[in-house]
Each structure stands twice: as structure tokens, then as C-alpha cells.
Simulated assay, not measured.
Amino acid sequence: MFKPNQYVKPSTYTTAIVDGNTGSIRFNTADVRAETEAATDPSVYVQALVDAAEEYLNGDEWREEAMERTPCEFRPAGSEATGQQIIAMADRTVTFDPRRNWDNQTIDKGEVLAGSMIFTEATDTALVISHRATILDHNIQAGFTEGSLAQTADKILRDIELSAAGKIAAILSTAPSTESISEAKPTGKPVEIAEDLIDILTMNINQTVGTSLADFVVLLPVSLLPVLERAAQRAGVEDIETLIGAGVQPYNGTDHGLFLLPKMFTSLSYRERANGDIWKIEATRNGNHQCWDLEIMAVVDIVANGKVRVKLTADGLQTETVAFPMITNIKLT
């Protein structure tokens, strides 16, 4: 017999109810532990997300995929972004801010001859990738599965990728070495739009840094993905990259147009932390709101300022270093 007003926890761990419907009532005879109640424990859910993000983002797999998506490097903590040097493959006239030569002539354009050395520097703006997800306890305590956890992790990483690419596109759109070109926006069915886009990209290849689309990575608005994917299906090819003949990196946010990033130059320089990791992943308990805050951060420099020396005098004794149009930005109007 229980004494009045005295609580005694049940001694039976589970009680099964079997009638027309099947179910069970669970009584916990000990504190809830991760190994017994993992599917309703927010801390287990968050730890699984952190472990998965750490394993992928700070592993070899992410670095390999990052290099496939955009030309990039991963540099040790405390070091500077690596400048690139490459020989121009074709003659090209470049325009620049007016300069005066020794003969008091104002020069605003000069010819860059094939064989001239082009080098790159980091832009004045570095990108801090920082995203936070708030995971409320009551959303997890109802239960979760391995599949739902995997979907959440994939969605978080996908959002980070598209958002970071959008911020990179914004920086590139105003970089001195970005050459902007306007083209009429293609219309019609997906196949027709895709064909016109490929023609536009092909006709605007910068021959000094590449000779075919395969020498570039195309940074494009995510809104074009469904169109290109449908066109790839109709063409019977495996993916968009095969359809276009170049690597593709979509971005979201403001539409800055399409960018042709030359593979011969490193465009992104990721900073490693003191422990060798690129990404910092932290889970912080927010007791005031009964939730966990998951933060994922990284710092990347945009190595996109191309420079070249041009002659200001006929004898070539006076030269100036000027911005070189290395990245092509195609705006669809």
C-alpha cells in the first residue's frame, strides 16, 4: 500500500497494450540516458549534427569537392593568400584609369602581349561564412529518425554552400578584375534557354586565361538550375556539367549574373585554423529559450584581383601595373 501523498515510481519498465490497436506505454525507472532514449534527446540530436558536420567539413571529402566546384587553396593559419602567376595566351587591349607618361601624354589603354605575365592578389574584402541554426528542445522531444537527421544536415550544408557562393558573387561583381558584359536574357523552353546560355558563355570566353568552357567554372544563380537540369534530361546527359562542358557552382540571393572563373587561377583561399581545420563548428546551450544554437563558421579570401604591366611609352621603358580583366561577369537583361 502507498502512504498518502507519497510518490513511488513504477517498478515496471514498460506495459504493452494489445487490443485492436497496438501500442506501448513507457515508464522510465531511471534517469533518461542517451543510449536508451536517443530518439527523443535533443543533446544527442545536436551532438550527432556536430559530429557529422565535423567529419565532413573538416575532412578530405569536403576539400576535394570544394576544389571541384571552384578553384581554391587551403592555407596554414597565419599565412597570406597565395598570389598566382600565369603567362597570357593571347594579345589583348586593356583599359585602365588614365596615366601620364614621361612625354606628358595621357594613356588610358594599353596592349597586353601574349607571353606577358599576369599575377593575382586577394581582394580588399574577405568573406566570413557564419551560419547559426536554432534547435528547439520541443521539436526534438517528439522524436527523430536517422533519416530526418540526415535530411537536416544536408539542408544545413546546402544552405551554407548557396549563401556563401552568393556572397562571393557579390564581391566578384565589384572586383577590379571583373569584366561585365550584358546579354539578352534567353526565353523559351528549357532546352532553348540552355542552348542560348551555352552560346552566350562560349562567345564570351576570355581567351587570355582559357580557350574553352572546360577551362572555367561557371558561377550562376540557383534559379537557372531547374532549367539546366531539365535541358540535361532532355539531352540525355548525366548532369549540368556534362551539358555545359564546364564546372558549375550555383548561388542564391541577389542575382549578379553568371561568372566565368578561370581554373588556371585560384579564386578562393580558405584560412585554416591553428588546429588545421577550416571550419569551426560549435553547439551552445541556450537555456533561456530551451534550445541549442549550432554555429558553423569559416573565413575565406577572394583571390580575384588580376594585375599586369603595360607599356606607357613606345620604347617600353616606362610601364605601369594595372588591373587585368580576368573574370567575366555576364548580366542577363
Score class of each variant (00 low, 15 high):
residue 16 A to G: 06
residue 96 F to W: 02
residue 115 G to S: 09
residue 157 L to C: 04
residue 219 L to P: 09
residue 44 V to R: 01
residue 144 F to G: 04
residue 89 M to I: 04
residue 281 I to M: 07
residue 317 L to Y: 14
residue 70 T to L: 15
residue 296 I to A: 04
residue 269 S to N: 06
residue 179 E to W: 01
residue 75 R to E: 05
residue 145 T to M: 00
residue 33 R to Y: 04
residue 153 A to S: 08
residue 311 K to M: 14
residue 75 R to S: 11
residue 212 S to Q: 14
residue 4 P to N: 07
residue 265 F to H: 09
residue 105 Q to P: 00
residue 228 L to W: 11
residue 258 L to K: 01
residue 124 D to H: 06
residue 190 P to F: 00
residue 328 T to V: 12
residue 188 G to R: 02
residue 159 D to V: 05
residue 206 N to T: 02
residue 219 L to G: 13
residue 251 Y to Q: 00
residue 67 M to C: 08
residue 308 V to C: 10
residue 179 E to D: 10
residue 152 T to P: 00
residue 292 W to S: 10
residue 258 L to Q: 02
residue 77 A to N: 12
residue 60 D to Y: 03
residue 331 K to I: 13
residue 271 R to E: 13
residue 68 E to G: 07
residue 89 M to F: 10
residue 212 S to I: 07
residue 204 N to C: 04
residue 268 L to Q: 03
residue 8 V to F: 08
residue 208 T to W: 05
residue 21 N to Q: 11
residue 79 S to H: 09
residue 271 R to F: 12
residue 118 I to T: 09
residue 209 V to D: 10
residue 165 A to I: 02
residue 299 V to L: 14
residue 196 D to F: 00
residue 261 L to D: 02
residue 123 T to H: 10
residue 177 S to M: 07
residue 299 V to Q: 15
residue 12 T to D: 08
residue 262 P to K: 04
residue 221 P to I: 07
residue 252 N to S: 14
residue 95 T to C: 01
residue 153 A to G: 02
residue 237 V to T: 13
residue 81 A to H: 06
residue 197 L to M: 09
residue 42 P to F: 01
residue 221 P to C: 05
residue 65 E to K: 09
residue 45 Y to I: 00
residue 62 W to V: 03
residue 273 R to P: 03
residue 196 D to N: 13
residue 253 G to W: 03
residue 20 G to T: 06
residue 42 P to Y: 05
residue 122 A to L: 04
residue 94 V to C: 04
residue 298 A to G: 10
residue 108 D to I: 00
residue 253 G to V: 00
residue 224 L to T: 08
residue 305 N to F: 06
residue 303 V to L: 12
residue 127 L to P: 05
residue 106 T to H: 01
residue 38 A to N: 05
residue 145 T to A: 07
residue 142 A to L: 11
residue 17 I to E: 13
residue 311 K to V: 08
residue 54 E to Q: 14
residue 292 W to F: 14
residue 242 T to W: 01
residue 197 L to Y: 09
residue 69 R to K: 12
residue 281 I to A: 09
residue 120 T to D: 08
residue 252 N to G: 10
residue 304 A to V: 08
residue 220 L to N: 10
residue 275 N to P: 07
residue 287 G to N: 14
residue 181 I to H: 01
residue 252 N to H: 01
residue 176 P to A: 11
residue 51 D to M: 02
residue 156 I to P: 01
residue 63 R to L: 12
residue 151 Q to C: 00
